[in-house]
């Protein structure tokens, strides 16, 4: 659905994008993550045609985004980090105005607007002024507005910033529903925990280029494979330790209050074989568990930046 190759953009002395490559598959809910200043917004502005890159190509739905600028606008809907609202318009009028911007007028426009307002649970507010809506409602209206022309791709730039947890949860559900309906969604955020819960794919950007990309499960597997493995042995700890020392995939062994913690490089099958070996060696194991990795830890490993540059769960 979205294919980016070698995107470069420089602002005076600052290289905002430095050879960005990115692929978003059709139907994916793609989380675009990176610390502040990594180039997320610049990339999104290039994708949406608001900024011209110095180098590189962007293809949306198989079409060059710069050569076929007008055609490509039918293929995506954009939700910026700021709502962009006409406060003096009513919700219905706001929707119909943007419908007209895409060439939909009259009954067709009205029906499409009502359908989207219903989908976003805003149909009862059609006659209310935009100004009177809550932040969450405004965000849903913004999403409805972005879908007025039924685009295949939705580009959302930090859509949940400034929302309370409940509204954020509701918004996440809406996005999941849209994804289930077949929409491809590119969502940028610096709140990692949020993306980890809903995205099917993820791309981590740092210093203007993608440093890690793939499906959520693949990435988390990579994190887990390098995380410590905790083993609790009831009897036969010596045998267990002796067995572990012989295994070349075990890098370190530490024993604390009867629990053994090892650095073990291997996948789930290797873990199962290790457990079988321990039992065969005469150890009575009553707990065997890999420490679960999260996106934040891998993000910190990859970007190698200090904590200030990324908003963690505790700060939200």
């Amino acid at each position: 659905m979205l294919r980016i190759r070698g995107l470069k953009k420089k602002f005076k002395n600052f290289q905002a994008l430095n050879g960005l490559d990115m692929d978003v598959e059709e139907g994916a809910l793609y989380g675009f993550v990176g610390p502040n200043g990594a180039g997320k917004t610049t990339a999104i502005r290039v994708i949406t045609g608001l900024l011209k890159p110095d180098e590189g190509t962007v293809e949306i739905d198989g079409k060059d985004a710069f050569r076929f600028r007008m055609e490509v606008r039918d293929a995506f809907g954009y939700v910026p980090d700021e709502f962009g609202m006409y406060d003096n318009l009513k919700v219905g009028e706001y929707m119909e105005f943007f419908a007209a911007c895409y060439g939909y007028t009259g009954l067709v426009a009205r029906n499409r607007c009502m359908q989207l307002l219903e989908q976003m649970k805003l149909d009862d507010r059609a006659d209310a002024f935009v100004d009177s809506l809550s932040r969450g409602m405004k965000q849903r209206l913004c999403l409805a507005r972005a879908m007025i022309h039924d685009p295949k791709l939705l580009v959302l730039d930090e859509p949940t910033s400034g929302m309370d947890p409940r509204t954020r949860l509701e918004f996440k559900e809406v996005l999941k529903e849209l994804c289930a309906e077949g929409k491809t969604i590119l969502i940028s955020s610096h709140i990692l925990s949020e993306l980890a819960q809903m995205c099917t794919d993820i791309g981590i950007i740092d210093a203007g280029r993608i440093v890690l990309a793939g499906s959520m499960s693949e990435i988390l597997q990579k994190v887990n494979d390098s995380n410590p493995l905790h083993i609790r042995v009831l009897e036969g700890r010596e045998q267990a330790v002796a067995f572990l020392q012989k295994d070349s995939r075990v890098k370190t062994i530490s024993i604390e209050q009867g629990d053994i913690t090892i650095q073990f490089h291997g996948n789930s099958r290797d873990e199962a074989r290790l457990l079988e070996g321990l039992l065969a060696a005469g150890a009575r194991v009553n707990a065997f568990m890999r420490e679960q990795g999260d996106l934040e830890s891998i993000f910190m490993q990859i970007t190698n930046h200090d904590m200030e540059r990324v908003v963690m769960r505790g700060e939200e």
Binding site: G49, L50, Y78, E82, Y86
Partner: peptide, 13 residues
């Protein structure tokens, strides 16, 4: 000022 200009640029206008 309302930040709606960029939205218009992403439409067919």
């Amino acid at each position: 000022e309302r930040q709606t200009l960029e939205l218009l640029f992403t439409t067919k206008m």
